[in-house]
Structures are given as structure tokens and as C-alpha cells.
Computed example of a mutant assay.
Amino acid sequence: MNVRVRQAAEYCRVSKSFLDKARIYGGGPAFMRLGRSVIYNTDDLDTWLASKKYQPANDNARAAA
């Protein structure tokens, strides 16, 4: 499904301003520009969100050291 910037920001739980800046400076989700409109695909948003996951450090590994 394709959504506009405000809808994408709500979907990702980030601000519209964040997405606007990420388009300029990089590091944001993939987007399409159709004339003056910016469109995000929800599959691309899901992929970008998944790339932001991190695995916390294993506390057991630190305790053994």
C-alpha cells in the first residue's frame, strides 16, 4: 500500500520532519517522488523499520568475562 508522508510518519511513529530530513540527508526509508508528491510504500517502511532493530548485549557473556 502506498501512503503519503504524514501517513508514513504515523505508521513508523516518527515525525514528518524526521522523514523530510531523512530524504535530504539519507538514512530514511525508500520513497518515490511523483511530481511534487512524496509516496512511501508500506513494504519499504517495514523493511526500513526492521533494519533499525538491534540485539542488546548478552548480559551472560559480560558476567563470564
Rank of each mutant, 00 (worst) to 15 (best):
28 G>H: 04
51 S>P: 02
30 A>Y: 03
42 T>P: 03
39 I>Y: 12
14 V>C: 09
22 A>V: 03
9 A>H: 00
44 D>M: 04
8 A>W: 00
47 T>M: 12
41 N>S: 09
48 W>Q: 08
3 V>C: 13
60 N>D: 08
54 Y>D: 14
37 S>R: 06
14 V>T: 05
4 R>A: 08
9 A>W: 00
18 F>T: 00
27 G>K: 05
22 A>P: 00
41 N>G: 09
22 A>H: 01
22 A>W: 00
36 R>E: 15
61 A>E: 10
36 R>V: 15
5 V>T: 06
38 V>R: 03
21 K>V: 08
48 W>E: 11
9 A>M: 02
22 A>L: 01
55 Q>F: 10
11 Y>D: 01
16 K>G: 02
4 R>K: 13
39 I>L: 15
13 R>Q: 11
56 P>W: 03
36 R>K: 14
58 N>G: 08
54 Y>A: 13
60 N>V: 11
27 G>P: 04
56 P>I: 08
31 F>D: 01
50 A>G: 08
45 L>P: 03
31 F>A: 13
13 R>E: 05
17 S>Y: 01
39 I>N: 07
32 M>L: 15
19 L>C: 06
21 K>A: 05
60 N>K: 15
32 M>S: 14
28 G>T: 08
27 G>I: 04
23 R>C: 11
5 V>A: 07
49 L>S: 11
41 N>C: 09
16 K>R: 13
41 N>I: 07
42 T>G: 09
28 G>E: 03
45 L>Y: 02
16 K>D: 01
56 P>C: 10
5 V>Y: 02
52 K>I: 05
14 V>Q: 01
51 S>R: 06
50 A>E: 15
42 T>L: 09
61 A>Y: 12
7 Q>G: 08
32 M>C: 07
27 G>M: 05
57 A>L: 14
30 A>V: 11
37 S>L: 13
22 A>S: 06
9 A>L: 01
12 C>H: 04
20 D>W: 00
10 E>M: 07
18 F>I: 00
24 I>K: 09
32 M>F: 13
51 S>M: 12
59 D>I: 15
23 R>G: 11
57 A>M: 10
8 A>D: 00
37 S>D: 14
49 L>W: 07
29 P>V: 04
42 T>I: 09
33 R>H: 10
53 K>H: 15
11 Y>Q: 03
6 R>D: 04
15 S>P: 01
56 P>E: 14
57 A>F: 13
53 K>C: 15
48 W>D: 11
23 R>V: 14
20 D>N: 11
18 F>Q: 00
19 L>F: 06
54 Y>I: 09
28 G>M: 06
60 N>L: 15
7 Q>H: 11
40 Y>H: 12
45 L>Q: 05
10 E>Q: 09
30 A>K: 09
43 D>K: 13
27 G>Y: 03
50 A>T: 13
27 G>C: 06
37 S>P: 02
35 G>Y: 07
32 M>K: 15
53 K>W: 14
13 R>P: 02
11 Y>E: 01
29 P>G: 09
15 S>M: 02
14 V>E: 00
33 R>F: 11
33 R>M: 09
11 Y>S: 05
